[in-house]
Write a protein that binds this DNA or RNA. Structure first.
Lengths: 166, 166
DNA sequence: TTAGCTGCAAATAGTTTGCAGTTTT
DNA sequence: AAAACTGCAAACTATTTGCAGCTAA
């Protein structure tokens, strides 16, 4: 792991990158958007619009959810974040990580973690070869299971896909 | 591929399996459910509730969508089908294939195909090892891209995730 | 200036749910 | 008979959209 800089500095760097990309795309750099970008990055994971909205509200009490929806969609169009449609989660999640990886979701507590492994690239190549598809590089692969924490706690009583947490 | 039996016979066999599983689970075997099971299997792919409903309406003009939703969810609980939450598709799809495989979705025309490859198993093992998760065996992996047909037709003008068909 | 963005409110629509009557076992 | 299921309609809610006023460039 390369943790040469403190988290805050890395976050700020990413936020700056987002703003630069917005500018390059001819989009306006509004204070709301800056706050939303910051919220997305600082969420440190896989935020939903509701989470982003709640976070941004601290600095912009009057902001509307529609603005968050709009901005998040703009960021997605620019390829800066990707959508994660997770089964049984009421809200759509977004991921700052755009390189091919796997999102592993706990069926019980709803936790989402990113996993990187060479087998992802192998899978992409194999699937592209077999299907003839031109696959999107930012594959938002999702796998479901029970996380170590819930396994230990014995929280995995039911094997179905009922929604326990988020 | 092992196509020893005609499609219709294989379908009927699967329908029978579904009905048997329903019975074993202590569920009732109603004519509506039989029709829904048949519709799911005969849809030959990745049906939505709307598609199933439309198909079942032929034999049960008075059936309600709620019944389809209920039954489909029951089948899912029993592990006979899996849910596919596909980005930008308005309806939830279901897949009769429950073995680990990849669903490849065309961003342009919405087509969904199943791809089997040993790399899927490798991925599952690697992810399970790295994450410590107990992964669900019926991994509904989804990848996005442009299908060969749309590639040829040059239909892939836009690289974003806007919804074109489906 | 002016095209684009924000915020508010209303609309959209897939899915879920409550309930009364019906049916399988 | 009893629990389960069906069908209808109403409810739910995340997301989208229209529009008037603001604002970054």
């Amino acid at each position: 792991m390369s943790n040469l800089a403190p988290a805050s500095a890395r976050y700020e760097q990413t936020v700056q990158r987002f703003l630069d990309e917005l500018e390059q795309a001819g989009k306006r750099k509004t204070p709301q958007r800056a706050a939303i970008c910051r919220a997305v990055v600082e969420s440190g994971g896989h935020p939903t619009v509701a989470e982003i909205y709640q976070r941004v509200t601290r600095s912009f009490p009057m902001i509307s959810q529609a603005t968050v929806y709009n901005t998040v969609d703009t960021l997605r169009e620019l390829g800066l974040i990707i959508r994660l449609d997770i089964a049984n989660h009421d809200h759509t999640h977004y991921d700052v990580v755009t390189e091919p990886h796997v999102n592993v979701v706990c069926r019980y507590c709803g936790a989402i973690i990113d996993v990187y492994d060479p087998s992802v690239d192998a899978l992409l190549e194999a699937v592209a070869g077999r299907s003839g598809f031109s696959l999107s590089p930012e594959a938002g692969l999702i796998l479901y299971g029970i996380c170590p924490h819930c396994l230990t706690r014995g929280n995995h009583a039911r094997g179905d896909g009922s929604s326990p947490a988020e």
